[in-house]
Design a protein around this nucleic acid. Sequence first.
RNA 1: CGGGGUGUAGCGUAGUCCGGUUAGCGCACCUGCUUUGGGAGCAGGGGGUCGCAGGUUCAAAUCCUGCCACCCCGACCA
Length: 486
Amino acid sequence: MAKITKQSENFSKWYTDVILDTDLADYGPVKGTMVVKPYGFALWTNIRDTLNKMIEDTGHENAYFPLFIPKSFLEKEAKHVEGFAKECAVVTHSKLIAEDGSLQVDPNSRLEEEIIVRPTSETIIWHMFKKWITSYRDLPLKINQWANVVRWEMRTRLFLRTSEFLWQEGHTAHATKEEAMQETLDIVEVYRTLFEEYLAIPTIVGRKSNLERFAGADETFSIETMMRDKKALQAGTSHYLGTNFGSAFDVKFQSKDNKELPVYATSWGVSTRMVGALIMVHGDDNGLKLPPKIAPTQVVIIPINSKKENETKFSENIQSISKTLRDMGVRIKVDDSEGSPGYKFNKWELKGVPIRLEVGMKEFESKQVTLCRRDNGEKTQLNIDSLKDVQEILTNIQSNMFNDAKQFMEKNTCTADSFENFSNILSSENKFIKAYWDGSDETELKIKEETKATIRCIIDDVDDNTKKCIYSNKPAKHLVVFAKAY
RNA sequence: CGGGGUGUAGCGUAGUCCGGUUAGCGCACCUGCUUUGGGAGCAGGGGGUCGCAGGUUCAAAUCCUGCCACCCCGACCA
């Protein structure tokens, strides 16, 4: 395990170093693909299980739809096609021929209709919804699936943007516009809770501008987060799809009073990108820093008994400490591998384990453990009889990490009253900027061109004429957050 | 696709301009001894079709031709 690049030297390199050195993931052989290694998968699993419970608790059911989508399905919703056409993996043949030890595609096996590897599942799900929805009694239909999707991206980065990624995608169908919009917003709250209470990541929530909206949505809400380099990461989205997919797939239902009515839709998702957010929001020069609630290992115990004194009693002590913690429901690991204590301290700090307990002869004799916190580096002595305090310390670390991140985001969010001021901030400090915007695509594009900052989301609407657009100076329609984004 | 690079052991590299011993070094790995409370030391050891194919030559990692792959910067994006 080599030393990682400092954040201040090269943040991108730091990010990659951390992922590779902590065994979260590795590169796959096909460009843009990623192997999620056991430590990374354990982290993902914890996030997934937490969110899955929240999704089920809000009345959604899990299901699984096919990976393969007929090409014609994607053509049915005009904007959806446009948005995804340029990044689809396409299956065109079904056979290979072995020739002198090499494989050739069999030209005779060409498929009549090409198959798309799903970049998202709206089309296939609405194809099925047509079969399932006929009456008001079938609504609302609230489905979620955990799946992999493929988007053939030009530039990829571990966890943030890979050709294939894991996610959950929720798809719901409703009888009214109001109900669908409420669902869209309810999900935003579910995501916000996941981020703030479990991942300890503060969020900014708002609507997307026309240009940034999901292909096929009438309205997109996004969860925006600030990384340690002050760049924004869109960490989750919830879309109000109106009747776009309902009408594209000809889904209608009969109401109580026997009318034929359109079906309203939502879709929403979060992905393995969350792991990237976790790394970049909390990590420091010593590596990962994982919030206790989702850390694969919450407490690592390092036995230190180099001289192998009193071995039996010593290891009984370690076992008793482990058992006490395990019985409390704490996820622990004892590192009794070979290697120096210093090496292990650094290794587990790098891996972001919230609490390290050092137990050597000193501690053994005084019936104590040395407790070191990953969030602030504090070392304290803890009596063996007070091990139950660990639970409370974990809770404290969790909230401390959230507060740190929140403070960081607030400190690096400002307002701008002129475009000159606006550009200066972006070129010198790279902060989030709250500013007024006239609501036009044109202005948004010009600002992006000149500063590389984009509208992350709309946080408020304006209807009096006193507020002016930061760029055009025309009457403002919205208060928005600008930032450079991943 | 436009611009710029790079391919030598698991990783990082020297050597290429100017062809010439057994392709060198660091990390990692293996063995042994000494160590072990903040990334241990010493000694020994294993691992290479020098991206691929062809050519020039007594001799090619090095020169020539062709191909392939990957990386960085731009448009796309959970």
